[in-house]
Design a protein around this nucleic acid. Structure first.
Ligand code: MN
Ligand code: MN
Ligand code: MN
Ligand code: MN
Lengths: 219, 219
DNA sequence: AAAGAAATTTAGACAAGACTAAAATATTTT
DNA sequence: AAAATATTTTAGTCTTGTCTAAATTTCTTT
């Protein structure tokens, strides 16, 4: 059995690899809230176990074995998030925190029961794809809201789950995955983005707009 | 926050205290699957934190603070067991194992949601009472099946959850908490006990019968 | 009541995973 | 291309929770 620490490192490496391409010691240090020295020492251990490839001073890459484990934990995490929302009505800004701990102690058998209960879902409450049992995951093509041109009708695909406050705000205005909305304008000088949703206009900060992924609405 | 190890020690101390009265190092060593030396060193730590009172060579007793924590974890454990059975159909011989891990990472908020979902239940799937939020627990008066005289009509109150195989056997013959059954006879020379349940007779080993708690049926 | 056996504690070691401070390497600026 | 800066690694320490072996205390037997 892998420790919770190892599982969280592998998950963090996977996420940084996906979003930034290169995985640096400092990025992991920041993401996991531990010192850079702690990251280096864990990298040594993961290398020995052949879960990552580590070139000194050059960052880190998952091996297929490491990626498989990362996706397994992400699968747990996302199934749990959706389960908590659907079965127990936990609000979407609270599910992440709970999943972060439960994901490490979920048995494969209970994972399967939850999956079945949910009807074999493909996305979590924030719109992130749920990895399959076999360790594969679909990747979608979409744009950050911050990069969309004004006057475009878009559909929300995914919202980052790491800032509960943002989630509460978005939930409050009814902005969820699958919601369609119109990008009205982008204010100059890094100002906010104005969107129209169910007839009303709302303001989304430039920074928040980086964490909202959308695709062009098909019509 | 308390570590998982501390929580499991306090829970084990509570359980031994309840069932044996005196809590010895060796009883905890056996129950937790660690060496006696490990128990002693943890007892030292729990003493310093005023969660137990420890007299050298004389065993251990929970303080009110320690008992409160033990009951809090037991509450988690039993709510989880019942929840897994009711909401996800996990069979009663599997719920314990899952609860043993999940109990340590359940938030108070999710605990409350589960409690509400279940309609504020008072017993878990094995018939054990669920401690209340305030750290109190009802204690019931009942006898071990092994001590009941033949020709008595009894109602099952509680079955120990520690042996999955026993639970599967009992489930197979339909022996659950709340079930009524007739104690037909006790075979001599520490032989098995014969019970009658829904018209059929079944055999329960003397040892297993220690772990089945019953009360006289009221009629 | 002394001897022997059993239970408990102490002493010392180890692995995991964190930290700080200092050294090594890489990157950026001048 | 040096110098200055930023990043990463190494060295050494600490805490938690485990272990084995040896010493101590308590319990049981004679
Ligand atoms: Mn986690
Ligand atoms: Mn899994
Ligand atoms: Mn436990
Ligand atoms: Mn609780």
């Amino acid at each position: 059995m892998l420790s919770q620490a190892i599982e969280d490192y592998l998950k963090a490496i996977y996420e940084v690899e996906t979003s930034e391409g290169k995985v640096s010691t400092s990025a992991l240090s920041e993401k996991l809230g531990v010192s850079p020295a702690s990251v280096t020492s864990m990298m040594k251990k993961l290398s020995e176990r052949k879960l990552i490839a580590h070139k000194r001073y050059q960052g880190v890459k998952l091996t297929p074995a490491g990626r498989k484990i990362a996706l397994e934990i992400i699968r747990h995490h996302r199934l749990i998030e959706l389960y908590l929302k659907e079965a127990l009505g936990v609000p979407w800004d609270k599910v992440h925190q709970e999943a972060e701990k439960w994901e490490h102690v979920l048995s494969e058998e209970l994972e399967d029961r939850i999956d079945e209960f949910l009807g074999y879902p493909v996305t979590d409450p924030h719109g992130s794809p749920i990895p399959r049992r076999d360790g594969t995951m679909i990747v979608r093509q979409c744009d950050a809201l911050v990069d969309v041109e004004p006057d475009t009708l878009v559909k929300v695909v995914e919202v980052s789950d790491h800032d509960p406050e943002l989630l509460r705000y978005l939930g409050g205005i009814g902005l969820y995955p699958e919601t369609e909305m119109m990008v009205v304008s982008k204010q100059p000088f890094k100002g906010p983005i104005i969107i129209e949703l169910t007839g009303k206009e709302y303001t989304i900060g430039r920074n928040a707009a980086k964490y909202i992924l959308v695709e062009k609405a098909n019509n």
